[in-house]
Amino acid sequence: MADTPILLREQQYHQIKAVLARLRMDASAKVVFLVDKDGQEIASQGEVGNLDTTSLASLAAGNVAATGGMAKLIGEKEFPTLSHEGEKESIHISVIGRLLLVVVFDERSSLGLVKLRSKQVSHQLATMFDEITKNDYDDLESPFAEITDEDIDSLFS
């Protein structure tokens, strides 16, 4: 297949969460989350509350995919960041390889600050994610290795 699956270990997940928590504080953001380019949410941090992060993740990925398509048409590789500023709430998205770092913020912060802080953690997140995808998974027991037809059928009962 085109992409290898992402398998996230517990420890890696907590490392990512810690980086996002730090970024959220440094950027005075409301919510920070990491999404893969296909729209899967990987981790989030902040006042998630009743924010529908799953939908937001899919739309952020769609947004990046669409602007990426436009970039190619005009001869650019991609647009590395996107931002949308509303009256009160705003969103900033940075493309980090296969990942999207999405920051939701309001008037307590500013686009400049969010941009700066996002950039500062980009490298770290890229390195962490490299490790995740390079990882050897032989010791990770696939939860599906011994799945039976009955298991699958039971999902639809």
Binding site: M1, A2, D3, T4, P5, I6, L7, L8, R9, E10, Y13, H14, D36, D38, Q40, I42, L140, S142, P143
Partner: peptide, 9 residues
């Protein structure tokens, strides 16, 4: 692409 999170299972 499948995404398996062992932390949140």
């Amino acid at each position: 692409m499948t995404f398996i999170n062992y932390a949140s299972r």
